[in-house]
Design a protein around this nucleic acid. Structure first.
Lengths: 218, 218
DNA sequence: CGAGCTTCGTCACTAAATGACACGCTGTCA
DNA sequence: TGACAGCGTGTCATTTAGTGACGAAGCTCG
């Protein structure tokens, strides 16, 4: 999360832009959830966030894409988890550790955003426009994952096996995400997902023929 | 909804509609490939296919979705392959058989459509709008696949394991599709893909932890 | 033939998205 | 301190995507 000492000018600007996009996305997601995508206009989003409509279109190419930053939050823990996976740790151990760390460090805003993200992922069942956003976010996970895997397996990034494993693993992650999200929305007690890290790890192991999961012993 | 009983009226009508959509999609895909999605207007598509613009919007909810039928053709062989997979055959044997059958039975129009489909899948790399169509088509494969797998594994269709396997397998299919498509566009001799059925089968086996692939022995 | 159904074209319209330009804010340099 | 450059925003005009309403042509069944 902490992108500490960045560049002065464009770094500031990029961070500012990112925050604004997230702000807009929160309102858009809230409105999409309340009244559907078709029932929500660009003007409404603009008014809700307190900006002119023109500025919304400056930050998002389309109405639907306003949901992207929040939807992406639904996979951000996966991303950061994979980013920080040290070679000498097994997937299970690392996942458990990351889960604990997130439980400790997440802010209230983070949790609120996660709640919105779950709603969006759920909304993706009914709204094709949101589903495309969700699939595109998962596609992004897949691409990043391919990068990490190629490093971990010491193979070129465009190797077919690497891409196959990345695709299968990120697809498994997506399904589990959808599954847990649906359960949470239906009122399942979050404590029932204490074993989620194990389930995720097992799913990734299965999807990659056990290629991914064990510690790397050089 | 319309059952199989109304094969006369709505059946005819549905088939007609399907053909018209495909016809529109061909022209749209051709234009998208030639001049990009943004560079192509609804009016152009309408003119190319010889219909009024209004009629285009009657058959497609958006410009980008005009690509869907052709894109879907890129996964149609997978669909029909999976649909016709008899329990007593291994995945490899069935795939080889289906490949031969297709080589025998495909019409010139089918092959032309396949060529367009490959172009669209390739275009998906550059055009987000097309990529969403491609991902949605693969998503459809995943859902159908979940149906077949649940039948083959004798598990409920919404079982988590079934969905995980379907997701991983269809993701693998997608990557191989992209890979072969790119190679073909770059001029690789199609005969180099004689082992494609084996590669596909192996990828599906890997992605599903070998759950899918063997003949069912009851 | 003529009533009913469906599909398409035309026209008017709403909503999404872009271009052009002016305003205000911030930081910089002399 | 004041002139200037850069950036993000608002306003307004404009283009393009997409919908609603209605009428005309074709098909089918009696």
């Amino acid at each position: 999360m902490a992108g500490a000492a960045s560049t002065k000018r464009s770094g500031m600007s990029d961070e500012r832009r990112r925050r604004l996009r997230l702000e807009i996305s929160r309102e858009a997601a809230r409105l999409f959830w309340q009244q559907g995508v078709d029932g929500t206009s660009g003007d409404q989003i603009a008014e809700a966030v307190g900006l002119s409509t023109r500025t919304i279109w400056r930050h998002f190419r389309s109405k639907e894409s306003c949901a992207e930053p929040i939807v992406t939050k639904g996979v951000e823990w996966e991303m950061s988890m994979l980013r920080n996976w040290p070679p000498e740790l097994s997937l299970e151990d690392h996942l458990i550790e990351e889960t604990r760390r997130y439980a400790r460090e997440a802010t209230d805003a983070d949790r609120a955003d996660d709640g919105l993200a779950i709603k969006m992922i759920n909304l993706a069942d009914r709204e094709p426009a949101i589903r495309t956003a969700w699939l595109m976010a998962c596609d992004q996970v897949e691409r990043e994952l391919a990068g990490y895997l190629s490093a971990r397996l010491k193979l070129p990034a465009d190797d077919l096996q690497v891409r196959l494993h990345a695709a299968a693993a990120s697809a498994a992650l997506r399904v589990i995400n959808e599954d847990i999200g649906t359960a949470l929305l239906n009122g399942t007690d979050p404590r029932e997902f204490a074993d989620a890290p194990h389930r995720v790890a097992q799913a990734i192991r299965n999807a990659t023929g056990n290629t991914i999961g064990d510690p790397i012993t050089p």
